[in-house]
């Protein structure tokens, strides 16, 4: 029984780390974290979603992180609301904010929402530390599970491009 569980965890871990570098995994996780924490009905979230699917990162991990942080995001709302409110209340930037909001698509961006802006800024603030820590974590994970595979294409990010070229 226990061996089945261990085998399942190993399978998931191997599928995560297979053919993907720790940096790509860490980038996908970081983008997914920011996306998951913020409200989705705005262009910032859409842009993050596009980034996950456009950048060379692990999309699956990004989506998993987005779903996971969707549940955690609401608990951060009181703090992110304060952050966003503080930023949006900067007096010297009011005219710029107004100009942006009055631009086409300005209302769709959603930057005038305190939680959206607060979550986004908080996400940017913790992005590099999360990226660094997660890359370290996935490196360790790769060292544990990467030895099991003999596939030379493992971790080779540019293999497909090189084959296509």
């Amino acid at each position: 029984m226990l061996s089945d569980v261990i085998a399942l965890v190993r399978g998931i871990a191997r599928s995560l780390v297979a053919r993907t570098s720790p940096a790509q995994l860490a980038l996908g996780f970081t983008l997914g974290m920011i996306l998951g924490a913020m409200p989705k009905t705005n262009l910032i979230a859409l842009a993050l979603c596009v980034a996950i699917f456009s950048l060379r990162c692990n999309r699956a991990l990004g989506l998993v992180a987005a779903v996971a942080f969707s549940f955690l995001g609401t608990s951060l709302d009181p703090f992110t609301h304060k952050v966003g409110l503080a930023v949006l209340s900067i007096h010297s930037l009011q005219a710029s904010y107004a100009w942006m909001l009055n631009m086409p698509f300005g209302a769709w961006v959603g930057f005038n929402n305190t939680v959206v802006l607060g979550t986004f800024l908080l996400g940017l603030y913790v992005a590099y530390p999360v990226f660094w820590l997660s890359r370290l974590f996935f490196s360790v994970l790769r060292s544990v599970f990467g030895r099991d595979t003999d596939d030379p294409a493992v971790f080779d990010d540019d293999l497909e491009l090189r084959i296509a070229a």
């Binding site: 409200p39 709302d77 409110l85 904010y97 005038n112 929402n113 305190t114 939680v115």
Partner: peptide, 11 residues
Amino acid sequence: RRGEDILFAGC
């Protein structure tokens, strides 16, 4: 709805 939509002066 999460957060608060701020209406800036001039908007």
